[in-house]
Deep mutational scan, measured.
Amino acid sequence: QIFVKTLTGKTITLEVEPSDTIENVKAKIQDKEGIPPDQQRLIFAGKQLEDGRTLSDYNIQKESTLHLVL
């Protein structure tokens, strides 16, 4: 699982696999929060994550925290 922290300070927990794409993660966030993926920007280690890449591409491991910017 990974954590996604929103600007409001809320933390969302997501069940993911390293092979999941960023697009996939955004879809999971939409399921939980109702935020359309095209409004979501995910930041990890100061980098904006691209939809077509996977979590493992960015070396995002379990218990990692991503930041969600709208």
Rank of each mutant, 00 (worst) to 15 (best):
E50T: 06
Q1R: 15
L66W: 02
R41T: 14
I29W: 00
K5F: 08
L49P: 01
L42E: 00
F3Q: 05
L7T: 15
Q40S: 04
E15T: 14
F3P: 01
F44P: 00
P37I: 15
K47M: 14
L66Q: 01
I35G: 03
P36H: 12
S64G: 07
D38Y: 12
T11K: 07
V16T: 05
Q40Y: 13
Q39R: 10
G52T: 10
L68K: 00
Q61C: 09
Q48P: 12
S56M: 12
G52L: 07
N24S: 14
L14Y: 02
V69E: 14
I12P: 00
T65L: 10
A27R: 14
T65N: 04
V4G: 00
T21Y: 08
E50I: 07
F44L: 05
T65S: 05
G46E: 05
D57N: 05
A45L: 12
T11D: 04
K10R: 12
T21R: 07
T11G: 03
D20A: 06
S19P: 03
K47G: 06
S64T: 08
E23C: 11
K32A: 10
P36Q: 07
I12A: 02
I60Q: 01
L70Y: 11
L66Y: 02
N59R: 07
K26Y: 03
Q40D: 02
I35T: 08
G9N: 06
T54R: 09
D57W: 12
R41A: 10
V69I: 12
L42M: 03
R53N: 10
E15D: 14
L7F: 13
S56A: 10
G46T: 04
G34I: 02
L14W: 01
N59S: 09
K47Q: 14
S56R: 12
E23R: 14
V16A: 07
N59P: 03
D31S: 12
T13I: 13
V25E: 00
E17P: 03
K26H: 02
S19D: 12
S56I: 09
D51H: 06
L14N: 00
E17A: 12
E63H: 15
H67G: 05
E63L: 13
V69P: 01
K28E: 03
Q39F: 08
I29V: 05
Y58K: 01
L68P: 00
G9V: 02
K28I: 06
K28C: 05
S56C: 08
K32M: 11
Q40N: 03
D51K: 04
L42S: 00
F3I: 06
T8Y: 13
E50K: 07
E50S: 07
E33K: 04
T21C: 05
F44Q: 02
E15M: 15
T13K: 09
E15V: 15
G34R: 06
N24H: 12
N24A: 14
V4T: 01
I43V: 12
K5E: 09
K32S: 10
I43P: 00
H67I: 14
I12G: 00
F44C: 04
Q48M: 12
G46R: 04
D57V: 04
V25H: 00
L14I: 15
N24I: 15
T21S: 08
I60M: 03
D51T: 06
Q30W: 13
K47L: 14
K26M: 06
K62C: 09
L7Q: 15
T54P: 06
T21H: 04
T54D: 03
Q61N: 10
I43W: 13
I12R: 01
G46H: 06
L7V: 15
T6S: 07
P37S: 14
S19F: 10
G46V: 02
L70N: 10
K32V: 11
P37H: 10
G46A: 04
Q1G: 05
L7Y: 13
E15S: 15
T54K: 11
I29D: 00
K28T: 03
I43N: 06
Q48I: 15
K47F: 12
K28V: 04
K5M: 15
D51M: 05
E15H: 14
K10I: 11
L42D: 00
K47T: 14
V16Y: 15
L68A: 02
G46D: 07
E23H: 13
K62D: 11
Q30T: 10
T54H: 06
V25G: 00
D20P: 00
E15I: 14
L49A: 02
I29N: 00
D51Y: 05
Q61E: 11
I12E: 01
P37N: 07
V4W: 01
I35P: 04
I43C: 13
P36C: 08
I60H: 01
E63D: 15
S64L: 04
E15R: 12
I29K: 00
L55F: 03
Q48E: 15
N59Y: 07
K5V: 14
R53Y: 14
I12F: 10
P18C: 11
I43M: 13
L49Q: 00
K26P: 00
T54Q: 07
L68G: 01
K5W: 07
D57Y: 14
T13D: 05
E63G: 14
L70C: 13
E15F: 14
V25A: 02
E50N: 07
K26D: 00
L42I: 07
A27Q: 13
L55S: 01
K26E: 00
S19C: 14
T6F: 15
T65I: 14
L55Q: 00
S56K: 09
I35A: 04
Q48G: 07
P37T: 15
G52V: 07
A45F: 09
I43H: 11
V16C: 12
I60N: 01
P18H: 07
L42G: 00
E15Y: 13
T6K: 05
Q1W: 15
L66D: 01
Q1S: 11
G34H: 07
I60P: 01
R41P: 01
F44M: 04
A27V: 13
D31R: 11
V16R: 02
K47S: 09
P37Y: 14
K5A: 08
D51A: 06
K62N: 12
T13H: 07
T11E: 06
S56G: 11
Q40H: 04
K10G: 08
K47D: 07
